[in-house]
Computed example of a mutant assay.
Amino acid sequence: MKRDLDKATIVIKSLLNKCEKSLQKLTNGTSQHTLLINRIEALKIALTLIEKEILNKTTNS
């Protein structure tokens, strides 16, 4: 389970990085820009939750 969470962390960090780079190419106020901002926030939340779960698994082992 922890290994799966570690893999998910790597994938989400990569996707987050790609989204942040793409955001620079979009015009403020467009629907694409707003959608990407929302996706970035969702990815950050997901990453935080996964990292908390990894920490819980580490301290409980």
Score class of each variant (00 low, 15 high):
5 L>A: 11
6 D>Y: 09
25 K>H: 06
50 I>C: 07
38 N>C: 10
35 L>T: 04
58 T>V: 15
40 I>M: 02
59 T>V: 09
40 I>W: 05
20 E>Q: 12
16 L>M: 03
38 N>K: 08
21 K>S: 10
28 N>G: 06
43 L>R: 08
35 L>M: 14
1 M>L: 14
1 M>V: 12
7 K>V: 05
11 V>E: 12
7 K>Q: 15
34 T>P: 00
14 S>D: 12
31 S>W: 03
42 A>E: 15
54 I>G: 07
56 N>C: 09
3 R>Q: 15
61 S>R: 12
6 D>I: 01
39 R>C: 01
23 L>F: 01
33 H>E: 06
34 T>W: 00
32 Q>L: 03
27 T>V: 13
59 T>D: 14
19 C>P: 08
22 S>W: 02
24 Q>T: 13
5 L>S: 06
46 A>R: 15
43 L>T: 13
27 T>N: 09
43 L>W: 03
10 I>T: 12
51 E>N: 11
44 K>G: 05
57 K>T: 08
46 A>E: 15
54 I>S: 11
52 K>D: 11
19 C>N: 11
46 A>P: 10
34 T>G: 00
48 T>K: 08
25 K>A: 05
52 K>S: 11
52 K>M: 14
12 I>P: 05
60 N>I: 08
7 K>T: 08
36 L>F: 01
39 R>S: 07
